[in-house]
Design a protein around this nucleic acid. Structure first.
Lengths: 176, 176
DNA sequence: CCTTCGAGTTCTTTTTAGGAACTTGAAATA
DNA sequence: TATTTCAAGTTCCTAAAAAGAACTCGAAGG
């Protein structure tokens, strides 16, 4: 089975990875957040081939993650800018960056720090519970299926569940 | 330039992607969080080739993200389990999952929901400021270089900065 | 008019992934 | 005890994707 077919599974992680889960795509988006906007700048900064860059940008535009806008003065030049959907990816990059800083560098050697513009303080981005505000780490959340998804799938066999989800959701009771 | 060479840049996102930023690796880890532990289970659930699976698992073990432990009764069978470093990746998966749920499905059709075990409530994982607790979205944080990184790199030329970081950090003033 | 530049295409070679069969050392079974 | 099964890989061969470099094409600049 090809990796790309996983994007069709009923799993938001798999579907998200089907859109942005390629190394070059993620690096392109990182640079978007760092304010890179033009084709040749992406190419020079990342060093990827123009072929792959063109293909990835086209896909990101098709997915409405980037918007391709002509520059006001030079209508034949373009800028690639993050759409609202693209900006919504920022927690993924904060999480990647924060993990790298914490686990791949000594504390005094970490390359990045973070400042919250609205409160002005240096901070760490933390994944928190929207209800109680506590930090979420490891497995102290259950990522479970919604009720309607459970109801629609509770009669499937184990093999069908694997085909549909790509893993066995613990909430589904399956007769082996 | 090869994609893999980006892992050597002074950027925690690039380095993190160098370790886990491959589609199959991310899917393997997703299944680890879903409690898959054995070689053949990964193979069957994900449908990837045994060759690629073996290689990815070896790398994850070498990076101390997974730990390969012999089963107590059958010493010739193994379990792959998340190490603390591996569990530290959970915010990345929460972010991927949450984005997919919000942007790829109608609200009533979202496949996943989340429950915080310690407070017991249904919730959304939100990336928050560790200092003021507010939610972080889009570009309302500055992911800037630490002071020692700025000091060590402020004399570099633009070309050298791109080679070292893979992008142009806005904090570095470069003479073009 | 000639050259440069931005934004791609096209082409060839190398690397990686997909598919399927083979290995090896337990453990279960007859 | 011999024979099959099973988990966890290897090996090998083909197909797809990425790397590298050169080429196109339409504006803009000199």
């Amino acid at each position: 089975m090809k990796q790309s077919e996983h994007a069709e599974k009923l799993c938001p992680i798999a579907q998200t990875l089907g859109i942005v889960g390629d190394s070059w795509t993620l690096l392109i988006l990182r640079n978007c957040f760092m304010r890179t906007r033009r084709f040749d700048d992406f190419q020079q900064e990342l060093g990827l081939t123009r072929h792959v860059l063109a293909e990835r940008l086209k896909k990101l535009v098709a997915e409405d993650i980037l918007v391709k806008v002509p520059q006001k003065d030079h209508a034949s030049r373009f800028e690639y800018r993050l759409s609202p959907k693209g900006k919504g990816l920022s927690p993924i990059f904060m999480a990647l960056s924060n993990w790298g800083n914490e686990w791949l560098f000594e504390e005094s050697e970490q390359p990045n720090a973070y400042r919250h513009k609205s409160c002005g303080k240096d901070m760490k981005p933390k994944m928190c519970c929207s209800e109680c505000g506590e930090e979420l780490i490891g497995q102290d959340i259950q990522m479970h299926l919604t009720q309607h998804t459970i109801e629609q799938n509770e009669t499937l066999s184990e093999q069908q569940v694997i085909e549909k989800f790509g893993f066995i959701p613990p909430e589904l009771e399956i007769s082996k």
